[in-house]
């Protein structure tokens, strides 16, 4: 379970996340939605300790990330596909991360097989496409068989086969009783995948509701999103039609 209490993140004078409070429950896929610049990535980074909040806390099963002895066994996160040194092979990259948390070579091979990179495990990451890097990030997230998973735009760069695979993977993970938080801009996919939605805009919580209730009120997730975030869009293109 992920608990966010009064989280406030500032970059200098700009407030990226403003007194945000919500919880992500296990056993279902929770969609994390909002316009660009709403504070989704900042919030997710704060959960894994990559961001130091100005105020508030982010707790995983009651503990801050930094207090967890072997964090990868509790939390797996795909936040940034580019977070890998291009000079290493895929296998070496995953193995180094695994070693830091006491995870062995067998599991490394398993996760690489799982994400479909077993064939290119010996190739340097510098030569990978975006989709391959995404899969690599997912492999790292799955290493410790964690109870909490967070994915920031996981289908970025994936082909339709990959998108469908992700959809199945997320549902399976949630079905195993894990806490799954996914952020995405693909409303259609989200509607098919997530059971709960947390919607934020300009750093503040807009809506924290079940998918069913949102679709019931607005007709579709996209309509719900557009309606609820009208006032919170940071970067709107062109003039009104």
């Amino acid at each position: 379970m992920i608990e966010i209490h009064g989280l406030t993140i500032k970059y200098g004078a700009a407030v990226a996340v403003d007194d945000l409070t919500f919880a992500v429950k296990p056993g279902q896929v929770t969609g994390f939605l909002g316009p660009n610049g709403a504070g989704k990535s900042s919030t997710m980074r704060a959960v894994v300790g990559l961001e130091a909040p100005h105020a508030g806390v982010a707790l995983l099963d009651g503990r801050p990330y930094g207090m967890i002895g072997r964090p990868l066994e509790q939390v797996g996160a795909l936040l940034d596909a580019s977070a890998a040194h291009g000079g290493r092979t895929a296998r070496a990259h995953v193995a180094c991360v695994a070693r830091s948390n006491g995870i062995g070579a067998r599991r490394v091979a398993e996760v690489l097989e799982l994400v479909g990179l077993a064939g290119v495990a010996g190739r340097r990451v510098g030569g990978f496409s975006l989709g391959m890097r995404q899969r690599l990030g997912i492999a790292v997230a799955l290493l410790g068989d964690p109870g909490v998973l967070m994915f920031d735009e996981p289908v970025n760069g994936l082909d339709p086969e990959g998108i469908r695979w992700i959809r199945g993977l997320l549902r399976t993970l949630a079905g195993e009783g894990r806490t799954v938080l996914v952020s995405s801009h693909l409303m259609g996919e989200m509607e098919k995948t997530a059971a709960h939605v947390v919607l934020i805009g300009r750093g503040r919580l807009i809506e924290d509701a079940s998918m069913a209730s949102l679709v019931g009120r607005f007709g579709s997730l996209e309509d719900a999103y557009m309606e609820l975030t009208e006032a919170s869009v940071e970067f709107a293109a062109g003039g009104r039609a």
Binding site: G49, L50, G66, S82, A83, A84
Partner: peptide, 18 residues
């Protein structure tokens, strides 16, 4: 510095948060 330059630092800090 290579960790920072390549973004690897984010993976490293996720694995070793301290």
């Amino acid at each position: 510095t290579a960790e920072h330059a390549t973004g690897q630092i984010r993976t490293s800090l996720t694995a070793v948060p301290k």
